[in-house]
Design a protein around this nucleic acid. Structure first.
Lengths: 136, 136
DNA sequence: ATCGAGTTTGATAACGATTATCAGTAGGCG
DNA sequence: CGCCTACTGATAATCGTTATCAAACTCGAT
């Protein structure tokens, strides 16, 4: 017996699915405690690590150094377009870039290339919001 | 008077230039202490942050969550090809990807897009070395 | 060359995120 | 139902980074 099903793991999975974009383990833990689950921080970390390892979640690092997680719809390799204001995340296909990465790596003698391609920007809504409050 | 020239800052800049690839602040600090400079850890962090802010250094996050810095030859925006074994770093042009990133961001309504594009792999030398020690 | 104002330094404490520890709990199979 | 063992959760420990603050130093002015 190697893996057990616990309600905690299930709650973490749910909370992750409910989240709009990427969320940190801390945020997720806080959110779960609001649901009156006495879930522990360490458990959330463990569950997230497990989900990420199993391919059910995707993880990346925020510019501030936190690990962010997100339930992954698209299985396999893909990239993200993330609003740095509201956290909205869009999964993007990047076959073009995949190719380019492999080609570039190979041309420099590199093998086993993995790449990190993420785009941070402002989504339409946040761009509009920002335009409104600018008046100088 | 806003910025002063101190030998510490200069030493950090030198040490950074000497490094082959990306180095962490901690590593750089250790290396500088070996040179018998009584330089402080906090100072190294400050100097690196300053260099990065001024565009004289480039920073990225290692998968382990450390901030890595590197003296930047190419001023302006560019990307990196990094050997995850020996740390060798190659600066790469990626106009193709720049375009793609802008296009992708725009097509989803995103503005002010910045992207992170870094490729981690094994350089030729390390690939060969690894092939040698494999015998199972 | 000397002085003074204000920036920078450096040792340490504080901080935040993550991981390890370990006794107690509870899932799942007989 | 009961046992075995993986899992949980509170806490401590760890690690990288930032803040603090008195002392040192830089630089322009005298």
């Amino acid at each position: 017996m190697a893996q057990r099903n616990t309600w905690q793991r299930e709650r973490v999975r749910e909370a992750l699915s409910d989240a709009q974009g990427f969320v940190s383990a801390q945020t997720l833990h806080a959110r779960l405690r609001d649901d009156n689950t006495g879930i522990g921080l360490a458990t959330v970390y463990r569950a997230l690590a497990g989900l990420a390892a199993g391919g059910d979640a995707d993880s990346l690092q925020s510019p501030e150094g936190e690990n962010l997680y997100r339930a992954c719809v698209t299985s396999g390799h893909h990239h993200h377009l993330i609003c740095r204001q509201c956290g909205l995340t869009v999964e993007i296909e990047a076959s073009e870039v995949e190719e380019w990465a492999q080609r570039t790596a190979a041309s420099h003698g590199f093998t086993s290339a993995e790449h990190v391609v993420d785009i941070f920007g402002l989504c339409g809504a946040c761009t509009a919001a920002r335009a409104n409050e600018r008046d100088d």
